[in-house]
Every structure is written in structure tokens, then in C-alpha cells.
Amino acid sequence: MYSYRARRLIAEMPNRGSLADATHSAQAENPVCGDIIKLYLRIEEDVVQDVRFECRGCPGAMAAAAGITELVKAKPAAECRALDVEALEAHVGQLPLHKRHGLELAIDALRSCLGIGDR
């Protein structure tokens, strides 16, 4: 089952598209299914001033990608660095078990964006 919040994220896709004046961008890809999440951040004074995502993939990846943009927007970069799958799941709400890999992909994209290593 998808939570109401996950379904809203998939239907409305807030913060979708690219960001021309991004200071940071990176993508993560699942080599098996081909899902891709690309994040664009504009970080100024160590705060995420703006954020966008692009995603090609299953609904779990879509919800996670849109959800992570809501989580990081206007947050200090230091707080963003501490985000993990559990925090993202708490924001997105329930995803079907077999769609949870989208959460990991979104966190990977964020960590890559911020120049930190693997989960």
C-alpha cells in the first residue's frame, strides 16, 4: 500500500524538473531496474535555498525523489547530511515493501550531491 502522502507526491510531483542555478547536482541509478533520481540543490550560506528533482522510475522512486526535495528545502546542509532512509520514510509514509528501494536511491542521490560517501 502507498500512504496518502506518497500518492500525493506521485500525483503532484512538487519541485520537479531541473534547476539552472544549482550549486550541487548528482544522480543515483539502480543498475538492475534502471530507476534514476537526479537532484539539484542551490546551497547558499550553508542552507538549501532551492531544490529540484528529476526521476525516471517506479512510483516508489518518484515518491522518494519528490519527498526528499520537501525534506531538504530551506534546511541547513549539515541537517541534510544527516538524513537517512528512515527519516525519508517517515516523511513519505508507507510504500509497498517491494518499492522501498526508491528510498535508498533518493538518499544515495542526496549523499552524492553533498559529496559524502555511501550509506
Binding site: A11, E12, M13, R16, G17, S18, A26, Q27, E29, I36, K38, F53, E54, C55, R56, M62, A65, A66
Partner: peptide
């Protein structure tokens, strides 16, 4: 609208 949003979210280029 739903299709347009999904297309706007699709990566234009990938790394």
C-alpha cells in the same frame, strides 16, 4: 496534467 507533470519530472539528460 498528470502526464505533463510526469514528463516534466523525467530526466532530460543523465550523467
Amino acid at each position: 496534467d498528470l502526464v505533463e507533470r510526469a514528463r516534466e519530472a523525467a530526466p532530460k539528460t543523465t550523467d
